[in-house]
Simulated assay, not measured.
Amino acid sequence: MTRTILITGTSSGYGKAMAELFHDRGWNVIATMRRPDPALFPASPRLAVLPLDVTKPASVSQAIADGVAAFGGIDVWVNNAGIGLVSIVEATPDSAMREVFETNTLSVFAACRAIIPQLRKQGRGTIINVTSSVALGVMPMVAVYAASKCAVEGFTESLSHELAAFNVKARLVEPGYAPTTNFADNVRGRMPGLMPDIYGDFAQGFFARLAEYPTRYCTEAEVAEATFAAATEESGRIRYPAGVDSQLFAGLRWSTSEEAYLKAMRDMFMPAPQA
């Protein structure tokens, strides 16, 4: 029986790569985005391109109904859509914080709440929430973004315990930084006014350190492969780091002491102290 996956945020980057990989491997794919563009994918009876704005509950419910109507059910739901933010905390207004949490966090909670009854009724299924390597290794100037992703990490781990009795899994894919996606442009569009001059030297030093490490960034293909593993593995595993940097941070976070983790992160990303 052909399995069906619904992925949010498939217009580019990780989401598009996921949709292509799952389709290539024989799955039915429901590729969703705010403004559907069927031309992004080759026409196929196993592909439906649907509108979905993750911040609007009615849009989520309609996508579920349309996806079930198209393929008879949804086996895997991937919360991939999100936005980035690089900023200095004291300069970040409430409006920016709310926008990040509304998209990255609260919309994930709401989507999970919406799809759980369908998966529970089917007696099987998997929810995959895409977070970030910054939920494993927290660096400067991403406090709000990291908080939005760390919240999803705790939520998903707790959710996995709640759903186990119904044969429904909740898992995390944790991508590293992929400069080839639209993430950097997404972030730059939100940065004006969020970098006070007093932090100029610090920010310049941080970006210089960031450019030095790691030597190889994450790719869209690695994230798609990690998502496929999260969708298909029969195990109790919850976290799937994707990319060299994410795997490094996972090792530091989970396999070393607090002191060793903090020293490594500061050595990698903290600029030299100002005179």
Rank of each mutant, 00 (worst) to 15 (best):
T131H: 03
P196R: 09
G176A: 09
D185P: 04
V144G: 06
T131D: 04
V187A: 15
P192Y: 06
A151P: 06
R190G: 02
M139Q: 10
G176I: 05
P179G: 10
R171Y: 02
M191D: 05
N167T: 07
N186M: 11
V142A: 08
V134P: 00
V168P: 01
I198T: 13
V130P: 00
G137Q: 03
D185Q: 15
F155E: 14
V187N: 14
E153A: 09
I198C: 07
P179T: 09
E153C: 10
T131S: 10
L194V: 04
A170F: 01
R171S: 02
A164P: 04
V173G: 02
V134W: 00
D185L: 11
A165Q: 14
V144R: 04
S133W: 02
A135F: 00
V152K: 05
A143F: 06
N167L: 02
I198M: 13
G137E: 04
K169Y: 01
G189K: 06
F183L: 15
N129C: 06
G189T: 08
L159M: 11
L172Q: 03
T131R: 05
V187T: 12
S132G: 06
R188E: 08
G193H: 04
P140T: 03
V144C: 10
V142F: 10
A151I: 07
A147M: 11
F155D: 13
V173W: 02
G176V: 07
V138W: 00
I128W: 02
G154L: 08
P175I: 04
V173R: 01
K169P: 00
T131A: 06
E174S: 07
M141D: 03
D197A: 15
V138M: 02
A151W: 07
L136Q: 01
E157K: 15
A146E: 12
M139I: 15
V187E: 14
E157D: 15
L172W: 00
V130W: 00
A146L: 07
A178Y: 09
L172Y: 05
L194E: 04
M191S: 06
T126Q: 00
G137K: 01
K169A: 07
V173M: 04
T156S: 15
M191C: 08
S160A: 15
V134E: 01
F155A: 12
K149T: 11
T180V: 09
A184T: 10
N129E: 07
P192V: 01
S133H: 04
R188H: 12
A178I: 10
Y177P: 03
V173D: 00
G137Y: 01
V130D: 00
N167M: 03
L194T: 07
P175M: 08
A147K: 11
G193V: 02
T180P: 01
E162C: 12
A135H: 02
A164L: 13
G154V: 12
T156A: 13
M191I: 15
T156Q: 14
V168K: 00
A165I: 05
S158Y: 08
T156P: 09
R190H: 11
T156G: 12
V144D: 13
P175T: 10
D197W: 03
